[in-house]
Design a binder for these strands. Structure first.
Length: 375
DNA sequence: TCTGGGGTCCTAGGACCC
DNA sequence: TCTGGGGTCCTAGGACCC
């Protein structure tokens, strides 16, 4: 039996901002938009003043009460809650707090898998076993104590709260950590699945997104319980051998994936959405400048992180939101901005340029470390 | 009221080699 | 002249996640 925990920081970016601006506590606040919208003195800009194409990255629980949520366009959010306050994102500060909370967790539970800036999985099986002598006789009670200790350590290190789910696997823990947010601690055993998991919408399963959710609904499957009772052959017929079979397993709460404590990046990229769509001919010079600057920033990222890459990719999004990509694999890996620019420029020639463009991006994949040799 | 930026993984077809 | 499988690499698109 494994004891797997998932930890999710509560409204992370917004909570970090509230540490800096405690006077905003209790108010609807959203984080989003470009850095430009700087905070001047005590004048916090209201959402109603916003113009542009940004989206909400995080909303406080007070803002969520207005129906605001991450991913929502700021213009739409402004209609729903014009008086909510808008703060620009400060990723350097969020990364600093992220390191603080992860270091605090690792001091207690060394088996940690990074899942982005505000989330981790932990395999706490060892902790639960070690505490058998002095702790409670029920291992699930000891798992709960361990999770409480971790929550306290995160709070002491950062002043921030988090929610934790503890279950036999990653899939269930991810769902469980959301059940009692904020500040929640949810422990689920296998026998709790029918009562606690099956009533939930299929979309709560990590890996069932908007498309699969809609297709399941179209065949009359809304809850995880309904998915669990569905004929696996029907799921395979609709979603393919691999995905269909996985859905069935997931609905029954089965997941054997390990907590992966080390991993290497597969690709590094930079992209930008323009304030106004650009015309490939009329705005050629401006596009070219932005293109080059993306390549320079990407080369900086590669150098700072210590990688070179062999596959250069271009990404373009048209004004109708259709996205195309092209890539080109070089004979030798590179980290040079000029070489990246040339390869991406070749990719650009293979893409139709017959309408306005809203986004341009450059990516480097097939990464390796330049120092590494074959022998 | 149109939808950010950074990623991962999967699928599928074609080239190419044995 | 027609016909095999198997394996790997490359490319493009799409779903999904934080």
């Amino acid at each position: 039996m494994r004891f797997i925990a998932h930890l999710d920081m509560d409204a992370f970016y917004a909570s970090v901002e509230l540490l800096r601006y405690p006077e905003l506590r209790g108010k609807p606040v959203v984080i989003g938009g470009r850095r430009r919208a700087a905070v001047e003195g005590n004048a916090f800009p209201a959402l109603r003043a916003y113009t542009g194409r940004g989206v909400i990255t995080t909303a406080t629980y007070e803002a969520r009460a207005f129906g605001l949520h991450s991913g929502m366009g700021l213009m739409k959010a402004a209609k729903l809650a014009p008086d909510a306050l808008l703060l620009p994102a400060d990723f350097d500060e969020y990364r600093r707090c992220s390191r603080l909370f992860k270091d605090a967790v690792r001091a207690l539970a060394p088996e940690v898998e990074d899942r982005g800036i505000d989330e981790i999985y932990m395999d706490i099986t060892g902790l639960v076993e070690e505490s058998a002598a002095e702790g409670a006789p029920d291992p699930w009670v000891r798992a709960r104590v361990a999770a409480r200790d971790i929550q306290r350590a995160v709070r002491e290190a950062t002043g921030l709260t988090c929610s934790i789910g503890v279950t036999p696997n990653k899939l269930l823990s991810k769902i469980a950590s959301e059940l009692e947010k904020p500040g929640g601690l949810t422990v689920l055993r296998e026998e709790d699945i029918p009562a606690r998991i099956w009533p939930l919408a299929v979309r709560k399963i990590n890996g069932i997104g908007p498309k699969a959710g809609a297709r399941l609904e179209a065949i009359g499957i809304r809850t995880i319980g309904e998915l669990a009772q569905a004929d696996p052959a029907l799921l395979v017929a609709h979603f393919g051998r691999s995905y269909g079979a996985w859905m069935h397993e997931a609905a029954h709460g089965r997941d054997g994936r390990a907590v992966v404590t080390v991993s290497e990046p597969k690709s590094i990229s930079r992209e930008t959405t323009f304030e106004d769509d650009l015309h490939p001919v009329r705005d050629r010079e401006q596009l070219s400048r932005i293109f080059t600057s993306l390549c320079v920033r990407l080369a900086d990222d590669l150098k700072r992180k210590g990688y070179v890459g062999r596959t250069i990719g271009l990404k373009l999004r048209y004004d109708n939101f259709k996205t195309v990509t092209r890539d080109r694999t070089l004979d030798e890996p590179t980290g040079d901005s000029g070489a990246i620019r040339r390869a991406a420029g070749e990719c650009l020639k293979r893409v139709p340029l017959d309408r306005r463009i809203r986004l341009l991006g450059v990516r480097v994949g097939a990464l390796s470390r330049p120092g590494a040799t074959l022998f």
